[in-house]
Computed example of a mutant assay.
Amino acid sequence: MDNLMAYIAVVIVLAMMPGADSMIIMKNTLNINSNAGRVTILGIVLGHLFWTFIAVIGLAVVIANSIILFSTIKYIGAAYLIYIGIRSFTAGQLVSVDDLKEKQQQAKGQLGEAFRQGLISNILNPKVLLLYITIMPQFMTVGGSIGENQQLVILAGLLIGISSLWFLLVVELVNIMKKWLKSRMFQNWLAKGAGVVLILFGIRTALDA
């Protein structure tokens, strides 16, 4: 892993690029609260751990090389993004800062859904799979003092750590913006906008070759 700093730079750029994960985090932070955004990140992290395990045991290459398996993941993932995008767009009035305490019980029930959205969308994201079999191997040293699987785990850990830090920052920024812009109508339209973007991400995922 001679190019570790280059890999870290690539991961930082990838983490900061707008994608389905960041939009789901923003949507849940807007629709529910900052805890929902953080729980969504936890789901995303577990999704990455799933793909790390799959890559370590060698199944990631098998899935990527199977047209049926890869296409199945791609289309189910695209459909799921469109589904949660529609859910966000058609959601009712958002929980405002003023009445958040009165809605705590409802929010607790939504935390589980936020976690599942982060987990499922990551597991069903074909771009995450490709990341493990195309980008990571470029920064691994074959025949080095550290085994390839160990290198993969280290690179995946860096990806998860850097991405999580960025996503936590996104949650805080969205939460600050939500407190500043207390208008329920404005927050509602922001959530609808996030829903539209998720739908577009789903469509793009389905159409990607």
Rank of each mutant, 00 (worst) to 15 (best):
F53S: 14
N122H: 07
Q106Y: 11
K178M: 05
L198Y: 12
I146D: 08
Q105Y: 02
V39M: 01
S88V: 01
G109I: 06
T205V: 10
G92H: 10
Q93N: 15
G143F: 11
L46P: 05
L94S: 11
G43N: 04
L111R: 03
V142T: 14
Q117C: 03
S164C: 09
Y132M: 14
L94G: 08
N3V: 01
V196A: 12
F50C: 10
L155H: 07
G161F: 12
A194I: 05
M177W: 15
K108V: 06
F201N: 05
R116C: 09
P126A: 08
L4D: 06
A107I: 15
Q93P: 02
I73G: 05
W180M: 11
L49W: 13
I63V: 15
K179M: 11
Y132S: 04
D2R: 08
I84K: 06
I162P: 02
I24M: 10
L207I: 14
I176H: 13
I154Q: 06
V142S: 13
S66N: 06
A107G: 00
G193D: 05
I133S: 02
G202K: 04
K182W: 01
G195Q: 04
V39L: 04
V197W: 06
L200A: 10
G118I: 07
W166D: 07
M23P: 00
S88M: 12
I67D: 02
A64E: 13
T134W: 08
T72P: 00
G118M: 06
L100Q: 14
S34K: 10
L59S: 07
V142N: 11
L169P: 00
K127F: 11
Y83T: 02
S71P: 00
S71T: 14
G143D: 12
L4I: 15
S66L: 01
P18D: 04
Q104E: 14
N149C: 02
Q117M: 13
L100D: 08
D21G: 12
G161D: 01
L100V: 14
Q106A: 09
M136V: 15
I84C: 03
G37H: 06
S71A: 05
L14D: 12
G37L: 04
A79C: 11
L181T: 14
Y80Q: 07
I203M: 03
L119V: 09
L124T: 13
Q117R: 08
S88N: 12
F53V: 15
Q187F: 00
G112V: 10
L131K: 01
A60D: 13
A206N: 05
G195I: 02
I54A: 07
K127P: 08
W189G: 01
N35P: 00
E148N: 12
D99S: 10
V196C: 08
L81F: 04
P137R: 09
Y80N: 07
V13L: 13
G37N: 04
G47W: 06
I203N: 01
V142F: 11
F186V: 15
S163E: 10
V61T: 13
I57M: 13
